[in-house]
Design a protein around this nucleic acid. Structure first.
Length: 289
DNA sequence: CTCCAGGGATCAG
DNA sequence: CTGATCCATGGA
């Protein structure tokens, strides 16, 4: 991969394992919009960023050298060798080989933990278009405006004054009380998100589970998508279905057992495996009927 | 109309 | 302890 810095944008060429569509559509983040066929706009890290990809060349704009190196390089996990990871997880596994070939440009992002936590609380028993809508309205109501139509994600300190009714009016439904509990526990310092990335995965998970509305699936997503815990294997309806279909002969299997299977099979790479399978399953509607 | 969505809390046994 | 039921809301 080569990096070239221009006045107002940064260009990567000869990228390996980078496909912006697959990265954004694999369900790990919600704040993006498709601008044109090969161009996306994301709202992240209090910035608006356009990403345009043509083959192995990717352009980030507006973006300075400083921003790229201090923010986006890590955000897009560019220090990680995905080619090697794909080799490891698909070794002697024709199923994973297929999933990896299907969407070989997936990368796990390193998103903001607070935004990720709130977003995945909203995600429970919900569908992706509606999740995106709620997060967008939440940001418009309580975040700072950007030069785009979308606003930035609100800070914890601003949500301190937001009531259950406020959340309800955004369409969060029964999740409103969970959001209140989450904000309260963060303000109390009952949970400190800043310390979680230094803890072992299971210990960090226990902390997150203290929040009402945060169960195993939401906790795993926060750990995997924003705290660098790549060993987590979030088991949602899609992953449950596809893992059962491809690895359990279609047999109905408890989520606990599926997690244990993934941990044993892929170990510290389970999170990567999960994303390849999720994208593959959802795109092909595997296991539906 | 019913069913379901990247689940989890709560209740029944 | 496991399994069933409920939860708000909008689109299919």
């Amino acid at each position: 991969m080569k990096t070239t810095y221009y006045d107002n944008f940064v260009e990567l060429t000869e990228t390996d394992s980078f496909n912006i569509t697959e990265i954004l559509e694999c369900g790990q983040c919600f704040r993006f919009n498709k601008i044109s066929e090969n161009k996306y706009r994301i709202i992240a890290l209090n910035k608006v960023l356009d990403i345009e990809q043509n083959g192995t060349s990717v352009r980030f704009s507006p973006c300075t050298e400083e921003e790229f190196n201090s923010l986006w390089y890590n955000y897009f996990d560019l220090n990680t060798d995905y080619k090697k990871i794909k080799e490891i997880i698909s070794k002697d596994d024709p199923i994973m080989q297929k999933a990896v070939e299907y969407a070989g440009g997936i990368r796990l992002l390193n998103q903001d933990p607070f935004e990720t936590l709130i977003s995945f609380i909203i995600s429970q028993n919900n569908n992706i278009p509606r999740i995106k809508g709620i997060i967008s309205r939440l940001s418009k109501a309580y975040g700072s405006p950007s030069n785009d139509e979308e606003s930035f994600f609100p800070d914890l300190s601003v949500l301190a004054d937001v009531t259950n009714e406020n959340y309800m009016s955004l369409g969060t439904g029964f999740r409103a009380k969970y959001l209140c509990d989450c904000v309260e526990k963060l303000l109390n310092k009952e949970i400190d998100l800043d310390t979680l990335s230094d803890m072992p995965s299971e210990e960090a998970k226990k902390e997150l589970l203290k929040i009402k509305g945060v169960g195993p699936k939401v906790a795993d997503c926060v750990l995997l998508f924003s705290l660098g815990k790549r060993d987590m294997y979030p088991v949602d309806v899609w992953v449950k279905r596809v893992t059962e279909l491809l690895y359990f002969n279609g047999k109905d299997t408890p989520k606990e057992e599926i997690s244990a299977f993934a941990a044993k099979k892929w170990g510290k790479y389970a999170g990567y495996a999960q994303q390849y399978l999720f994208y593959y399953a959802r795109s092909e509607k595997l296991g539906v009927n």
